[in-house]
Design a protein around this nucleic acid. Structure first.
Lengths: 339, 339
DNA sequence: CTGAAAGCGCTTACAG
DNA sequence: CTGAAAGCGCTTACAG
């Protein structure tokens, strides 16, 4: 077992000072060609690599990005991470990931843990509980300490920082408009509870589309799912009671459950019932029928978020503090659940 | 903007030495009740937190685990990470994730990057390319430097380290045996190329099950998929030409494609064709029909891997160097793609 | 051209 | 009871 070699050891071995070794390895012109060669050869032989932690302490930057998301076993979030990771890696950054599990406390704990020097900046999406409590002190605190934060998807307007989002309301509007254009009149909405920011926005888009088209807005056609485990039953009731001809779901899981329930009730998709879902994921592509979705390009969101963060990290600290909100475009991907 | 406060600043402010501040905060009995109180109050007021990087350098341990996996947009891997993260967090560790993108070079680069002090140990699963090249020098090197490594799922026998796997061969055997028990005689296998360790093992299990049951082993019933994008066509041909009554797929993606293709060819699942897949993921649960799978509990694998790593990190370094291979149990989850 | 010193932020054995 | 010193592994302004 040959432990990693340090500058100190090389210096001792070569009988020069640590400074000389350090400078040689960094190709400082201060050092004679001769010593430089000697040191470099030795370092290579012993496979010397500078210790990241020491560098981080010295430079006061870690070259790592902290990511805090609600969960990782979730196609959209996995996709965003993948997008972040690629840009980060290209720029020489590592990525450290913490999961809040939709819990406020875990989110706070994780942020505090990472904020104590472990990372240079955050990329995050709020937990449900945080959105519910609307308590963002942990985030503003970090920002106040001068650590940049980029929020994506589930963001909060109250927080002043860079953001990457899609236009949830508009995208929902367009999806519903598409259903209306195809002659649908009774369009159900299966959404989340209102405190989830993106759920609320999508609900707004749905409502606006109905109103703009002079369609009746019927509260009874809206199902706000609180608990994913028991939603199948409620969706079944919705389909049964309400004589609907289309359904718009704010995520693909709701959509596939709608389709399953429709099947059980003898409704054919898309003939009797058209279905459009938000968030293009693996389920939409492989369910039967495949599901028409609003693409929400997680990779792009991740890329953008990483770029924004790194830009801020590498710009001259105190330049203009103007925060940007980047809107990633979406579009409808037509598949077999609509005609 | 109030920057993070350091011991030095507190010391200056309170006009005591840095040592005294440090000891006070750690409740050292060396320090008088009085100063201790004063320092602690002040620290609390300024919300002092020790700098992780400085601690890491001092303690020569980072309390973070490096994870290297082929990709993250993949239900199984996401699941494992989730399992690792939870145990890690409970034990006060963070988790830093790098993706190899199935590339040998990226895997090597990422390992080198993390091995230079950023982490205390690795949890990893090999990239396809690494398995193909069978070049593991980057891993043995890290191990030789005294950094513990735990491999999971795609492991290599050549590497001496802790491992977490399932019994791929046995699980495949049981799945195929189940098909045979239900009277299936011509069972197709859709698998990966042989260099993917788990693909090979599952293929072995399939083969053994056939032979043990005195069934004909027909090479033509085996499809080794190289490229996921073009496999649909080949699967179609397999279904068409071979008059098969069951199919065993080494992952759920292959399985759902089989089912889709079967549908196009007018074959009913499970009546005309039974399908079993490896790896229980989101697709299996929501495809139509739902898919019978071999559960491969990623969360459990992650938990176990994290526990093994942390145990090794926290045990007295040079205790017996006996490496363990932990086998996570699997079982068949019966759904609608089999009778 | 080389090296001693200071410093990044912390801890701890030791001296006083 | 308090503080100076050494050290974790590195870099760099400065002296020689």
């Amino acid at each position: 077992m040959k432990r990693k070699v340090t500058l100190k050891q090389i210096a001792k071995e070569l009988d020069v000072s640590i400074s000389t070794v350090s400078k040689s390895l960094r190709n400082s012109p201060e050092i004679s060609e001769d010593t430089r060669q000697k040191v470099q050869a030795f370092a290579k032989l012993y496979n010397y690599r500078p210790n990241n932690i020491a560098l981080s302490l010295k430079n006061r930057k870690t070259k790592t990005i902290g990511i805090i998301i609600p969960e990782i076993v979730h196609h959209f979030f996995a996709t965003v991470i993948s997008g972040i990771e690629h840009v980060a890696n290209e720029c020489g950054y590592s990525v450290i990931i913490c999961l809040s599990d939709e819990s406020f406390d875990k989110e706070v704990l994780n942020m505090e843990m990472l904020a104590n020097g472990s990372i240079d900046g955050f990329i995050m999406s709020l937990s449900k509980e945080t959105q519910f409590k609307a308590d963002f002190h942990h985030i503003t605190e970090v920002i106040n300490q001068g650590m940049p934060v980029v929020m994506f998807d589930r963001v909060a307007n109250e927080i002043l920082c860079d953001k990457v989002i899609i236009d949830d309301k508009m995208a929902a509007y367009e999806a519903v408009q598409n259903l209306i254009d195809h002659g649908k009149k009774r369009i159900a909405l299966v959404t989340t509870v209102d405190y989830v920011s993106v759920g609320k926005l999508r609900t707004d888009g749905y409502t606006k589309a109905l109103l703009d088209n002079g369609l009746e807005f019927d509260e009874d056609l809206i199902l706000k799912v609180e608990d994913i485990d028991t939603c199948a039953e409620k969706i079944g009731k919705l389909l049964q009671d309400r004589a609907i001809d289309a359904a718009f779901a704010v995520n693909e899981l709701f959509a596939v459950i709608i389709i399953k329930k429709a099947g059980e009730l003898g409704l054919r998709v898309p003939d009797d019932l058209s279905v459009i879902a938000f968030t293009d994921g693996i389920i939409s592509q492989y369910s039967t029928p495949t599901i028409t979705t609003v693409s929400q390009n997680g990779v792009k969101m991740g890329n953008k978020a990483a770029k924004m963060l790194i830009e801020r990290l590498e710009s001259d600290e105190h330049e203009e503090e103007r925060y940007r909100t980047e809107v990633i475009e979406t579009h409808l991907i037509h598949r077999d659940s609509t005609k």
